[in-house]
Protein backbone atom coordinates (compact mmCIF):
# COMPACT_ATOMS: atom_id res chain seq x y z
CA UNK A 1 0.00 0.00 0.00
CA UNK A 2 2.71 2.42 1.02
CA UNK A 3 4.84 1.57 -1.95
CA UNK A 4 1.76 1.86 -4.14
CA UNK A 5 0.85 5.33 -2.94
CA UNK A 6 4.45 6.49 -3.16
CA UNK A 7 4.43 5.15 -6.69
CA UNK A 8 1.35 7.22 -7.43
CA UNK A 9 2.96 10.24 -5.82
CA UNK A 10 6.08 9.83 -7.95
CA UNK A 11 3.76 9.56 -10.93
CA UNK A 12 2.12 12.82 -9.98
CA UNK A 13 5.48 14.51 -9.64
CA UNK A 14 6.41 13.47 -13.13
CA UNK A 15 2.95 14.44 -14.31
CA UNK A 16 3.50 18.02 -13.16
CA UNK A 17 6.67 18.21 -15.20
CA UNK A 18 4.86 16.81 -18.22
CA UNK A 19 2.06 19.29 -17.68
CA UNK A 20 4.47 22.21 -17.67
CA UNK A 21 6.15 20.98 -20.82
CA UNK A 22 2.85 20.46 -22.60
CA UNK A 23 1.55 23.83 -21.40
CA UNK A 24 4.60 25.54 -22.82
CA UNK A 25 3.85 23.93 -26.17
CA UNK A 26 0.42 25.50 -25.89
CA UNK A 27 1.93 28.90 -25.19
CA UNK A 28 4.24 28.46 -28.16
CA UNK A 29 1.31 27.63 -30.39
CA UNK A 30 -0.49 30.75 -29.22
CA UNK A 31 2.57 32.68 -30.33
CA UNK A 32 2.62 30.70 -33.54
CA UNK A 33 -0.87 31.98 -34.37
CA UNK A 34 0.52 35.50 -34.31
CA UNK A 35 3.64 34.41 -36.17
CA UNK A 36 1.32 33.27 -38.93
CA UNK A 37 0.60 36.93 -39.71
CA UNK A 38 4.10 37.91 -40.90
CA UNK A 39 4.59 34.39 -42.24
CA UNK A 40 1.54 34.79 -44.40
CA UNK A 41 2.75 38.15 -45.67
CA UNK A 42 6.12 36.63 -46.49
CA UNK A 43 4.51 33.80 -48.45
CA UNK A 44 2.27 36.30 -50.22
CA UNK A 45 5.24 38.45 -51.16
CA UNK A 46 7.38 35.53 -52.23
CA UNK A 47 4.91 33.72 -54.46
CA UNK A 48 2.25 36.35 -55.01
CA UNK A 49 -0.36 34.32 -53.17
CA UNK A 50 -3.87 35.61 -53.84
CA UNK A 51 -2.69 38.23 -56.30
CA UNK A 52 -1.10 40.51 -53.72
CA UNK A 53 1.50 42.74 -55.31
CA UNK A 54 4.63 44.23 -53.83
CA UNK A 55 4.04 46.61 -50.93
CA UNK A 56 7.35 48.46 -51.16
CA UNK A 57 8.80 50.22 -54.16
CA UNK A 58 10.50 47.92 -56.64
CA UNK A 59 13.98 49.11 -57.46
CA UNK A 60 14.29 49.58 -61.13
CA UNK A 61 17.48 49.87 -63.10
CA UNK A 62 16.81 50.97 -66.66
CA UNK A 63 20.28 50.02 -67.79
CA UNK A 64 19.84 46.43 -66.79
CA UNK A 65 16.27 45.90 -67.82
CA UNK A 66 15.69 44.95 -71.43
CA UNK A 67 12.36 45.60 -73.07
CA UNK A 68 10.66 42.72 -74.81
CA UNK A 69 9.21 44.39 -77.89
CA UNK A 70 7.72 41.16 -79.21
CA UNK A 71 4.99 41.06 -76.58
CA UNK A 72 2.30 43.54 -75.71
CA UNK A 73 0.47 43.11 -72.43
CA UNK A 74 -2.81 44.80 -71.69
CA UNK A 75 -2.98 46.09 -68.14
CA UNK A 76 -6.51 46.75 -67.03
CA UNK A 77 -7.31 49.10 -64.14
CA UNK A 78 -10.25 48.61 -61.80
CA UNK A 79 -11.09 51.16 -59.17
CA UNK A 80 -13.38 49.98 -56.42
CA UNK A 81 -14.77 51.93 -53.53
CA UNK A 82 -15.22 49.91 -50.40
CA UNK A 83 -18.34 50.27 -48.30
CA UNK A 84 -18.98 53.83 -47.07
CA UNK A 85 -15.98 55.23 -48.89
CA UNK A 86 -17.52 58.34 -50.45
CA UNK A 87 -14.48 59.51 -52.40
CA UNK A 88 -14.56 59.71 -56.14
CA UNK A 89 -11.89 57.38 -57.38
CA UNK A 90 -11.01 56.61 -60.97
CA UNK A 91 -8.16 55.97 -63.36
CA UNK A 92 -7.35 58.21 -66.31
CA UNK A 93 -7.53 55.29 -68.68
CA UNK A 94 -9.33 52.04 -68.16
CA UNK A 95 -6.35 50.14 -69.58
CA UNK A 96 -2.93 50.55 -71.12
CA UNK A 97 -0.77 48.35 -73.30
CA UNK A 98 2.79 47.78 -72.29
CA UNK A 99 5.80 45.76 -73.41
CA UNK A 100 7.36 43.60 -70.72
CA UNK A 101 10.30 45.45 -69.21
CA UNK A 102 8.96 48.84 -70.19
CA UNK A 103 8.33 51.39 -67.44
CA UNK A 104 4.86 52.89 -67.68
CA UNK A 105 2.95 55.52 -65.76
CA UNK A 106 -0.76 55.60 -65.13
CA UNK A 107 -2.64 58.30 -63.30
CA UNK A 108 -5.40 57.85 -60.79
CA UNK A 109 -7.62 60.50 -59.25
CA UNK A 110 -9.29 60.82 -55.91
CA UNK A 111 -11.64 63.48 -54.65
CA UNK A 112 -13.03 63.86 -51.18
CA UNK A 113 -16.59 65.20 -51.50
CA UNK A 114 -17.35 65.16 -47.79
CA UNK A 115 -17.02 67.96 -45.27
CA UNK A 116 -14.44 66.19 -43.17
CA UNK A 117 -10.78 65.33 -43.44
CA UNK A 118 -10.48 61.73 -44.46
CA UNK A 119 -7.71 59.24 -44.96
CA UNK A 120 -7.88 56.67 -47.73
CA UNK A 121 -5.90 53.53 -48.33
CA UNK A 122 -5.89 51.83 -51.71
CA UNK A 123 -5.36 48.08 -51.63
CA UNK A 124 -3.97 46.60 -54.84
CA UNK A 125 -4.72 43.17 -56.20
CA UNK A 126 -4.05 41.53 -59.55
CA UNK A 127 -5.66 38.80 -61.56
CA UNK A 128 -4.59 36.26 -62.69
CA UNK A 129 -3.08 35.91 -59.23
CA UNK A 130 0.06 34.18 -60.47
CA UNK A 131 1.03 37.39 -62.31
CA UNK A 132 1.48 39.22 -59.00
CA UNK A 133 5.16 38.31 -58.84
CA UNK A 134 5.75 39.62 -62.36
CA UNK A 135 4.03 42.94 -61.76
CA UNK A 136 6.42 45.48 -60.26
CA UNK A 137 5.46 48.90 -59.00
CA UNK A 138 8.31 51.33 -58.70
CA UNK A 139 6.01 53.98 -57.36
CA UNK A 140 2.47 53.65 -56.14
CA UNK A 141 -0.03 55.62 -54.12
CA UNK A 142 -0.92 52.34 -52.49
CA UNK A 143 2.40 52.32 -50.62
CA UNK A 144 1.03 54.97 -48.32
CA UNK A 145 -2.23 56.48 -47.16
CA UNK A 146 -3.83 59.55 -48.67
CA UNK A 147 -5.19 62.29 -46.46
CA UNK A 148 -7.65 64.60 -48.15
CA UNK A 149 -9.22 67.73 -46.77
CA UNK A 150 -12.90 68.39 -47.48
CA UNK A 151 -13.37 68.98 -51.18
CA UNK A 152 -9.76 68.26 -51.96
CA UNK A 153 -8.65 66.35 -55.04
CA UNK A 154 -5.46 64.47 -55.67
CA UNK A 155 -3.77 63.12 -58.75
CA UNK A 156 -1.86 59.98 -58.01
CA UNK A 157 0.73 58.34 -60.21
CA UNK A 158 1.39 54.66 -60.53
CA UNK A 159 4.66 53.68 -62.15
CA UNK A 160 5.10 50.04 -62.96
CA UNK A 161 6.66 47.51 -65.23
CA UNK A 162 5.75 43.97 -66.18
CA UNK A 163 8.57 41.51 -65.78
CA UNK A 164 10.01 40.04 -68.97
CA UNK A 165 9.73 36.65 -67.30
CA UNK A 166 5.92 36.85 -67.43
CA UNK A 167 4.62 33.39 -68.49
CA UNK A 168 3.98 33.19 -72.21
CA UNK A 169 0.24 32.57 -72.19
CA UNK A 170 -0.66 35.75 -70.34
CA UNK A 171 -1.82 38.74 -72.36
CA UNK A 172 -3.97 40.59 -69.89
CA UNK A 173 -3.33 41.59 -66.32
CA UNK A 174 -6.13 43.14 -64.30
CA UNK A 175 -5.01 45.43 -61.55
CA UNK A 176 -7.62 46.46 -59.04
CA UNK A 177 -7.42 49.11 -56.38
CA UNK A 178 -9.96 48.93 -53.61
CA UNK A 179 -10.14 52.19 -51.76
CA UNK A 180 -10.85 51.85 -48.05
CA UNK A 181 -11.74 54.52 -45.55
CA UNK A 182 -8.65 54.36 -43.35
CA UNK A 183 -9.46 57.40 -41.22
CA UNK A 184 -9.37 55.18 -38.13
CA UNK A 185 -5.99 53.80 -39.09
CA UNK A 186 -4.36 57.05 -40.17
CA UNK A 187 -0.59 57.09 -39.95
CA UNK A 188 1.21 60.41 -39.43
CA UNK A 189 2.91 60.18 -42.83
CA UNK A 190 -0.32 60.05 -44.80
CA UNK A 191 0.32 62.10 -47.90
CA UNK A 192 -1.59 64.84 -49.64
CA UNK A 193 -1.88 67.40 -46.87
CA UNK A 194 1.45 69.21 -46.82
CA UNK A 195 0.26 72.67 -45.89
CA UNK A 196 -3.02 71.69 -44.34
CA UNK A 197 -5.54 72.71 -41.97
CA UNK A 198 -7.22 71.18 -39.04
CA UNK A 199 -10.13 68.82 -39.00
CA UNK A 200 -13.44 70.08 -40.26
CA UNK A 201 -12.06 73.11 -42.10
CA UNK A 202 -12.92 73.46 -45.73
CA UNK A 203 -10.34 74.21 -48.35
CA UNK A 204 -11.07 75.08 -51.92
CA UNK A 205 -10.95 72.28 -54.42
CA UNK A 206 -7.54 72.11 -55.88
CA UNK A 207 -5.31 69.74 -57.75
CA UNK A 208 -2.49 68.56 -55.62
CA UNK A 209 0.22 66.44 -57.09
CA UNK A 210 0.93 63.37 -55.00
CA UNK A 211 4.11 63.19 -53.07
CA UNK A 212 6.75 60.56 -53.34
CA UNK A 213 8.41 61.11 -56.66
Amino acid sequence: MTSASSLARAGQQRAKRTAIRVASVGVLMFGFAFALVPLYDMVCNAIGLNGKTNTDAYSYDSARTSVDKTRLIRVEFLTINNDYMPWKFYADKSSVRVHPGELKTATFHVHNPTDRVMVGQAVPNVAPSQTARYFHKTECFCFEQQRLAPGESLEMPLRFLVDTELPAGIRTISLSYTLFDASDYASPEASGLENQVGLGQTVPTQEVIGRGQ
Binding site: V22, V25, G26, M29, F30, F32, A33, F34, L36
Partner: peptide, 14 residues
Protein backbone atom coordinates in the same frame (compact mmCIF):
# COMPACT_ATOMS: atom_id res chain seq x y z
CA UNK B 1 -5.85 20.18 -29.03
CA UNK B 2 -2.65 21.55 -27.55
CA UNK B 3 -1.45 22.34 -31.04
CA UNK B 4 -4.54 24.07 -32.37
CA UNK B 5 -6.70 25.43 -29.55
CA UNK B 6 -4.07 28.12 -28.87
CA UNK B 7 -4.31 29.06 -32.55
CA UNK B 8 -8.06 29.50 -32.16
CA UNK B 9 -7.36 31.59 -29.07
CA UNK B 10 -4.91 33.58 -31.18
CA UNK B 11 -7.37 34.21 -33.98
CA UNK B 12 -10.14 35.41 -31.67
CA UNK B 13 -7.63 37.58 -29.83
CA UNK B 14 -6.74 39.21 -33.12
Amino acid sequence: LIAVMPVLAGVVTM
